[in-house]
């Protein structure tokens, strides 16, 4: 396993989290301790073992592709933090061409 120390500032950017200096220091310490412990997984020979992503062998994820009604527009938007004209309001994401 890599012995790099975790770069919490970089990872937080990937995870879309803004952390305080205090959080970065604390998480760096906690996570490096956890990652050092996790090194023990290297003790096990996993050669030829298929990765297990799901605990049950008999899952059948397919169902008939039928139409059914879901939430109404109003119900779906009832928890949105900002709405206007039946839509969820978000910050401007496209700059105007002449700006």
């Amino acid at each position: 396993m890599p012995d790099n120390q975790i770069d919490v500032t970089y990872i937080a950017k990937l995870a879309k989290l803004e952390l305080s200096d205090e959080e970065i220091a604390r998480f760096s310490q906690d996570l490096n301790q956890i990652l050092a412990h996790v090194e023990q997984l290297n003790e096990w020979d996993v050669e030829g073992i298929a990765p297990m992503s799901h605990p049950l062998p008999d899952m059948d994820a397919l169902r008939a592709d039928n139409c059914s009604s879901g939430l109404s527009n109003d119900e779906a938007m009832a928890n949105a933090p900002a709405c206007a004209e039946g839509q969820i309001r978000v910050p401007k994401v496209v700059e105007s061409a002449h700006s």
């Binding site: 290297n42 996993v46 990765p51």
Partner: peptide, 14 residues
């Protein structure tokens, strides 16, 4: 190194 290996050890645990 982490995620895939953990999934393999998970198979061993099972």
């Amino acid at each position: 190194a982490y995620y895939t290996r953990a999934q393999k050890v998970r198979a061993l645990v099972a």
